[in-house]
Amino acid sequence: MEDFEQPVLSVRKINKQYGGGCASCRGPEARGLLKNYCPVCGTVYACRNISFEVYAGEILGVVGESGSGKSTMMECLYFDQEVSSGEAYIHSYKNGKANVFAESSQQKRYLRNHFLGKVYQNPLLSLKMNFSSIGNIAEKLIAAGNRNVKVMESRGKELLEHVNIPLYRMKEAPKNFSGGMQQRVQIAKALSNNPPLLLLDEVTTGLDLSVQASVLDLIKTIQRELKISMVIVSHDLGVIRMLADRTIVMLDGRIIEHGLTDQILEDPQHGYTQKLVQSLL
């Protein structure tokens, strides 16, 4: 039974910078910064003091323009990049007491394979395009220690059916699939080990509108049926409005506004968020 009072994920003051910084841009004020870039030393502060929680069965939306730090934050959460500083705790891992960023590379692989799933904007980052679709799912199961071929085949079929990929195409390589079908295979792979947390980064960008709608419907269905927690990044407020319970708004590497999605869309407080909402109307 899930503890709905306890966050599935707690993130505390994530910082990610590219460059060493200098007297002009270091420190809490960082007066020398041009947005999140230091023109003196060239350091880019991609994420600055990012903190939030994700609760059981919740979808947290992350919205902001290109370069706001959304995707960098997601890469840090999935260990695709190292954070410069900060902490993150997964409630079901070591009783939520271990800062996952401080764990060894071996433990981080374990976390990726057992506690996290990620769906990338570009399927090439997740899928082996020449493997079969069911083979891609098996790869994640094998990484988590599964060695039973029948169990893996059964799980792969179950997941492909769940994401509406016809089973007669399960031996087909994703390179033969449309963009929407590739995203569905990615989602199936990410779900293979029943992770408590799913990270989705711009999963509908570049898809036709009708395909976008079907992928969003699938995400909604998965969340409702599996009660899985999700963090979904998008620059499209329409996607966030459809999916997210709560939303954080990022600009220049910082969170500038957060709250219930309805509240942010109906009564935005920050000038940038107001412009975003106006662009949706």
Rank of each mutant, 00 (worst) to 15 (best):
V239F: 10
Q263P: 03
G20T: 15
D208L: 06
E65N: 04
D262L: 04
L9D: 09
H114Y: 13
A190S: 05
S68H: 10
N113G: 11
K275P: 06
N36T: 12
H258V: 07
I228W: 04
G64M: 04
I255C: 14
I232D: 00
K128D: 14
S71G: 12
N136I: 02
Y78E: 08
K227H: 15
R169V: 00
I90W: 01
V231Y: 03
T273S: 08
I142A: 04
E202C: 06
Y55F: 14
I256W: 08
A173L: 03
H235R: 04
D80W: 09
M181L: 02
M250T: 08
A144F: 04
Q183C: 00
L77H: 07
S24T: 06
L159Y: 05
A144E: 08
S154F: 15
G117S: 13
G69N: 10
A98K: 10
V249A: 04
E139G: 02
G253A: 10
N130K: 06
D262H: 00
M181G: 00
V239M: 00
V163D: 07
E153N: 00
Q223P: 02
Y18L: 12
D80K: 10
P39C: 08
A244E: 03
L111I: 12
E158L: 03
K97G: 11
S214T: 00
E153D: 09
G32E: 14
R246E: 09
L265S: 06
L218K: 02
L207Q: 08
T72W: 04
N136P: 03
K70Y: 07
L209H: 12
K175Q: 13
K157Y: 11
P268R: 10
L167V: 00
Y89F: 13
L160I: 08
K275W: 07
K13V: 13
V203F: 01
A173N: 11
T261R: 00
M129H: 07
A102L: 14
E172K: 01
A88Y: 14
I134H: 09
K175V: 09
I165A: 01
S133C: 11
N194A: 15
V11R: 13
L111T: 05
G253M: 10
R26H: 13
E161N: 01
I222W: 05
G96Y: 06
S234I: 02
G19V: 05
N148W: 02
S132Y: 15
E29H: 12
K13M: 12
L159V: 09
K70G: 02
V185M: 00
D236Q: 02
G86R: 14
T72K: 08
Q212A: 05
E139V: 07
S71Q: 15
A244Q: 05
L159H: 10
R246T: 07
D245P: 08
S126D: 12
K108S: 11
E75A: 05
E53G: 07
A46P: 00
